[in-house]
């Protein structure tokens, strides 16, 4: 496979994952700002902070309102991470790697671009926001379904999955990082209204407020939410789950290519640093320190992949 093609696939799926994560984040913010909040501006700011774009937002908008935040995150062409921008670049990448994709996957991505370009072509009133976010989620599901259902399980597939899980690991780690204060098990705050809102926001932003209840069978508390987000191998957005998938896909590539794999070594190190421990030892190390290091390790694994598989010359 061409290095450029591998890179196109990887970035295409990073983009699609990012669009979906952004939609989730806005959904969580919208829900809380609308129904629970006494201070919507601070909830919206927290959404922007979680998406790691505070400076870019504040340079372009003067207030944290639902309108400004959804404009910026969903449809601002000047924001390279807006859903509109990443979908356009995912579709450009899909055109670039068209020969590596099945018709079903290509059509799904092309249609996603058509549908979302149309939907995000105008300012979205609050009343329409839920349907818009729903459409983004549905389109992502469509692409994912086409990928699962039609693609050969070979190197092409592995690079698609690597893009998805590197992006997802980064996203989950950032959510934990931004909220780590709320996730510290400090007895003084447990059960306070503030924490409950924060926790729900965190779980909603990874679409886990329901699955958490099913999986954990316990009330919210800092320790079990943190454990769920970082260590639960059943939860498809946990760091452990993502690290496991990154490793598996790199193993498959190593078997197919038979070459020495620095990326696989990096991924295995990442995975064992996350999973060879329990939540108590993470708190001992310091949640913030642990997460900061994880973000760095995920990024390093990503760039090792780019280099090893020659995405660019």
């Amino acid at each position: 496979m061409l290095g450029k093609t591998a890179g196109g696939l990887y970035w295409m799926f990073r983009g699609l994952e990012r669009a979906e994560n952004t939609a989730r984040l806005i959904e969580a913010g919208f829900r809380i700002a609308l129904t629970r909040s006494t201070d919507p501006a601070s909830d919206w700011r927290s959404v922007i902070v979680t998406s790691a774009q505070q400076a870019a937002f504040e340079a372009r908008y003067d207030a944290y309102t639902s309108q400004n935040v959804s404009n910026f995150l969903l449809r601002d062409p000047m924001n390279p991470s807006s859903v509109l921008s990443v979908i356009k670049s995912a579709r450009d990448n899909a055109r670039l790697v068209r020969t590596a994709l099945t018709t079903e996957v290509w059509v799904a991505v092309n249609e996603t671009w058509m549908v979302l370009t149309d939907l995000l072509g105008h300012t979205i009133p609050d009343a329409e926001l839920p349907q818009t976010l729903e459409a983004i989620r549905q389109q992502s599901a469509l692409v994912r379904g086409a990928l699962y259902g039609t693609m050969l399980r070979n190197d092409v597939y592995n690079f698609c999955r690597l893009g998805t899980f590197v992006e997802r690991a980064d996203s989950t780690a950032r959510i934990v990082d931004v909220k780590y204060h709320a996730l510290l098990p400090s007895p003084a705050y447990v059960g306070s209204r503030m924490d409950n809102v924060q926790w729900e926001m965190i779980l909603r932003s990874v679409s886990a407020h329901r699955s958490f209840r099913h999986a954990v069978q316990d009330d919210y508390n800092a320790a079990n939410i943190t454990e769920f987000l970082i260590l639960d191998p059943r939860f498809p957005r946990s760091l452990a789950f993502c690290a496991q998938r990154i490793t598996e896909n790199l193993e498959a590539l190593q078997i197919e290519y038979g070459d020495e794999s620095p990326s696989l070594n990096a991924a295995r190190a990442l995975q064992s640093r996350i999973t060879d421990r329990d939540i108590a030892s993470i708190f001992d190390e310091g949640l913030h320190e642990f997460i900061s290091q994880t973000i760095i390790d995920v990024a390093a694994t990503g760039s090792t992949i780019e280099k090893q598989y020659r995405f660019t010359s």
């Binding site: 496979m1 061409l2 290095g3 190197d155 290519y257 598989y309 020659r310 010359s313």
Partner: peptide, 14 residues
């Protein structure tokens, strides 16, 4: 994606 290598045209693969 292409370059010259040992007097031939070569393409960058993974």
């Amino acid at each position: 994606d292409l370059r010259i290598l040992d007097g031939r045209i070569a393409v960058r693969t993974t």
